[in-house]
């Protein structure tokens, strides 16, 4: 493979006694969609801010396009499009003005930016909202505008911190569709998320983070293959009986997780396992066979669920 666009070794960030990012290594290559998956407080956003040259590391090395963000902040930020977790659109300006002035902040010419604004309004499906004030937009529209704004400088790397948190399912799908298009155009995407479905949908490769450290790395499929079985059988016996039943079921499958509300049984064949359970005269209130997901990988690695 060619040289990585972003390369971190032993990257560490401390805030006083608290270690937000604890010696992580990763490489991001051109054109790939790279994810940071982990619960809130895992250190994903901190890592993103260091890459975005708006936070200084405590120790370790990081190079972005061969440069150190600490020494070349403005030059590195010129390569990046940043979509922060919390929208920070300019509330005093209209939709189109937000895009326009953001391009100007990069020092781009008026003529170039004006052309770009029209293109981005179409991309974000906000043409009709062109002259609307930002505060009148819905959450999904604001998010699309923020992404469009991040694209005004034609960045090679687009960084998205929790891009769909707080959006309804439909708005999420529209957004995912836009991000797919960018990926097709060759933009390198960096995404943090605590939604496993988002990570599975969008990321070619990801690192699973917890408490500042990397727990695992790989493609969604390989992570599932390595850390989970093909299928999962979810059983509910009622909240007071899940644990008691879990003890009885333990010998029947490769691995079992007893959560307060349900028992998860990891197996290659969920239906077959379910039949065995019925024939053993154990009767769950509900049962569900599904494919393993990144949620199961996280549970295996940390003993906790992603969203708590």
């Amino acid at each position: 493979m060619s040289n990585p666009l972003i390369s971190a070794r032993g990257l560490t960030k401390k805030f006083g006694d608290f270690t937000a990012v604890n010696g992580i290594d990763f490489d991001v290559y051109k054109g790939e969609s790279f994810g940071f998956l982990g619960p809130n407080g895992a250190g994903k956003s901190t890592a993103m801010r260091i890459i975005g040259a708006t936070s200084q590391r405590t120790s370790g090395t990081i190079s972005i396009l061969g440069k150190d963000p600490e020494l070349h902040g403005p030059q590195i930020r010129a390569h990046l499009g940043v979509v922060p977790q919390q929208d920070n659109l300019d509330m005093q300006l209209s939709v189109a003005e937000n895009l326009y002035i953001y391009g100007r902040y990069f020092g781009l010419s008026r003529k170039f930016v004006k052309g770009k604004v029209n293109e981005l309004l179409a991309f974000a499906q906000l043409e009709e909202k062109r002259d609307a004030k930002v505060e009148t937009l819905s959450g999904g529209m604001k998010r699309r505008l923020t992404i469009a704004r991040a694209l005004v400088s034609e960045p090679e790397i687009l960084m998205l911190d929790e891009p769909t948190t707080g959006l309804d399912p439909q708005a999420r799908h529209i957004l995912w569709d836009r991000l797919f298009r960018l990926k097709e155009q060759g933009v390198t995407l960096l995404i943090t998320t605590h939604f496993m479905d988002e990570a599975e949908q969008l990321c070619d490769r990801l690192i699973v983070m917890d408490k500042g450290s990397i727990m695992a790395e790989g493609s969604p499929a390989s992570l599932i293959k390595n850390y989970a079985t093909k299928e999962v059988l979810e059983l509910r016996f009622g909240s007071d009986r899940n644990q008691e039943m879990g003890a009885k079921l333990r010998t029947m499958c490769e691995r079992i997780e007893e959560l307060p509300d349900r028992v998860l049984m990891y197996t290659e064949d969920g239906e077959a396992l379910l039949e065995k359970i019925y024939s053993a005269d154990l009767h769950p209130k509900t049962s569900l066979v599904r494919r393993s997901s990144l949620e199961d990988v996280f549970l295996r690695l940390t003993g906790r669920t992603l969203i708590e």
Binding site: Q75, A78, G107, L108, S153, P155
Partner: peptide, 29 residues
Amino acid sequence: PMAVAIAEKRVGKLGERVYSGRVPQLLER
């Protein structure tokens, strides 16, 4: 990208880490 070319022009100038000569753009805002 044009944004990069613009930023690179300031390399080596005084205060390059904190200043990029964008006061006119802020006044435009």
